[in-house]
């Protein structure tokens, strides 16, 4: 089966007027690193809980490697196939690092030398071997997160689901987690990741989905950027004002003109003449052009465009 995780009209309500997640349909392919993006309260954690069978859907369903999450008998098998890193590391802080891993290893049915070997491997690969006998509560936040990742990987799941894995970490610790994610991807596991760090998603993910209760967009990071910003151009002038902005707007094929200091940024449609026409209009208008450059939009630009397009208008807006 090419699809490992499937959401089908997935809906969950907590009893409020609007569901936390409403009619989500998408799939995560086997071996893919898939990022779930969305603002706070968009339903990312609820989606993860639904996809991992921790919460039951109000409507629709989800499948994990073909197993329906609504089927209670499949629950233990679904959970065995997934390694979950929740939003909070959720470690037993009075227990040692090793004991935390052993506990979860045993709950996943491991024992004896197999368990010992896997604990040792995880401690080594995540750089925790020299802290193994310390209480989990004494670790830094970054190390706690690494321990939680080790716990999620201990039973060697086919699929790893991580809810905001770099949230609240310093740059060094976040890099450690990113390295772990790259290693996961290299190992061929299916990875579902929810994150606010759009650079991480841009760099790591094969595909991304933007949600806000509903699915707003789904594509590769490059595809998403291209869909919302076909070509972005910046013209730096020696002096810029509202009139310069206005001149650009009169050119056919130019859209979304913005000005920041002496820089005018705009999107261009298809047509080789658009940029030269724009430059010519500005020069004729008395403006002196310092430079013209093509810009590469970031995933953040695309994300903000998606979210902005989906935002309800403010009260009283026309």
């Amino acid at each position: 089966m090419a699809e490992y995780l499937v959401a089908s009209d997935l809906t969950r309500s907590y009893g409020g007027p609007t569901p936390a997640v409403d009619g989500l349909s998408f799939s995560v392919r086997r071996g893919e690193l898939f990022a779930l993006l969305g603002p706070n309260g968009a339903g990312k954690t609820t989606t993860i809980r639904l996809l991992t069978g921790l919460l039951g859907p109000t409507r629709g369903t989800a499948y994990v490697n073909g197993l329906d999450v609504r089927d209670l008998d499949s629950g233990p098998e679904i959970r065995r196939q997934i390694g979950l890193l929740p939003e909070a590391a959720g470690l037993y802080e009075s227990l040692t690092v090793r004991r935390n891993l052993e506990l979860f290893g045993r709950l996943f049915g491991l024992s004896g030398s197999d368990l010992d070997g896997r604990v040792r491997t995880q401690l080594l690969s995540l750089g925790l071997a020299d802290r193994a006998e310390e209480r989990a509560g004494t670790l830094s936040k970054g190390l706690k997160q690494r321990l939680a990742i080790a716990r999620a990987l201990l039973h060697e799941p086919d699929c790893v689901v991580l809810d905001e894995p770099t949230s609240g970490l310093d740059p060094e610790a976040a890099k450690g987690v990113r390295d772990a994610l790259l290693a996961l991807r290299a190992s061929g596991r299916t990875v579902l990741l929810s994150t606010h760090h759009l650079e991480d998603a841009d760099r790591l993910a094969d595909r991304v989905a933007v949600i806000r209760g509903r699915l707003l967009a789904i594509d590769t990071p490059a595809g998403l950027k291209e869909r919302f910003f076909r070509h972005l151009v910046a013209i730096d002038l020696l002096r810029a004002d509202d009139r310069a902005e206005g001149l650009l707007r009169t050119i056919d094929g130019v859209s979304s003109v913005t000005r920041e200091g002496t820089r005018l940024t705009f999107e261009v449609g298809t047509g080789e003449e658009i940029v030269p026409n724009g430059v010519e209009a500005l020069v004729r208008g008395g403006y002196r052009v310092r430079s013209v450059s093509a810009l590469n939009p970031t995933l953040e630009d695309a994300y903000l465009r998606v979210i902005g397009a989906a935002s309800p208008p403010p009260p009283g807006a026309r």
């Binding site: 991992t52 929740p86 709950l107 049915g109």
Partner: peptide, 14 residues
């Protein structure tokens, strides 16, 4: 409150 419930519930325990 210690936020250990979610990892515990994600194990195969019935």
């Amino acid at each position: 409150t210690n936020r250990t419930l979610e990892p515990l519930l994600s194990t195969p325990l019935t």
